[in-house]
Design a protein around this nucleic acid. Sequence first.
DNA 1: AAAATGATCAACCGCTCTGAG
DNA 2: GCTCAGAGCGGTTGATCATTT
Length: 253
Amino acid sequence: MGRAPCCDKSIVKKGPWSPDEDLTLKNYLHKHGTAGNWIALPKKAGLKRCGKSCRLRWLNYLRPHIKLEVSLKRKIKLSAPFMPPLEAGNKWSLIAAQLPGRTDNDVKNHWNTKLKKKFVAENSTSSSQHFSSSSTVQPQVEAFLLNQKNSTWFDSYNILDPLIPMPQELESFGGSSYSAPLSNNEISLPTFNAASLAQQNEEDAQWFGYDYAGEDDDPNLLELVLDDLLINHGLASSDHTVANLDSFYSSKT
DNA sequence: AAAATGATCAACCGCTCTGAG
DNA sequence: GCTCAGAGCGGTTGATCATTT
C-alpha cells in the first residue's frame, strides 16, 4: 500500500504552463500568498494543476528576481553556511542559494549539461580508476571528494589562481568590500575588474541573466564561483568561512 | 535544404525530511 | 513516540532550439 498521491492525477493538467496559468498563479500568490499550503493552492486559485507543480513553477520561473538583471553586478554575498553536501544533501539548492537569481534547477541543469562533462573529462584521465562514463555523477563526485579532503577550498580557487594577477580590489578584500558586518556564515565576495579574464565568452555572463558588455565588473565571476563550487570543491566545503578567508589572506601578506 | 546530433531547460516523479496533531 | 500530510529536494525525462554533416 503506497502513500496517497498529493493530487488526483486524472484531473490535474500536466505539461508546459500557459501564460494564462502563469498569470493566474502569479496573481493569486501576489494577493494571498501560499497560506502555507501548496497542495490546496491550485484549487483556491482555480488552476487544474498539482500543488507541487505550482510550487515548482513559482520557484523556478515566476518568483521575483529569477535571473534578475543587474542587482548583483557589484557584490554577491555567500550567505548560509557551506555544508558538506554529500553528507547533508541539498547541494543544488545550497549552491543556488549563493547565486541570486538562479534556482536549484538551473544549477542542476548547468552541472548536468556543462560541468559534469568537464569534470568527468578532467578526472577520467588522471584517475580513471575512479571515474566512468556512468550516467550518474554521484560516485564520481564522491570519489573526487575523497581526493579533495586534504586540501583547503581556496587552494585551487580559480580567482586566486597565481597565474592570474591578483586584482587590486581583491587585494583589498579586508577593506571596503569586506568591512560590512558579516556573520560567520557570510562571505562578501570582492568585485574586481578582471581584465585578464575578459576574454571568456559571453555565454558565461548570459547564464547569469545580464549583459555585461562595457561593464567594469568581471562578468565571469559568478560563473567562476559556481564552476568552482561544483568542480574544485566537490560542490561545496565546510571550510567556506570568513575565518578561513582571514587566515588565507593573513598567510598571503 | 534536410537529417542527424548535441545542448539546453522546463517539468515531472518519487523519495526524504519536517512539523503538527 | 508515532503517524501522516505537506514541503523540499535530486534525478530524470522529453520537448525545443541550435549546430553540424
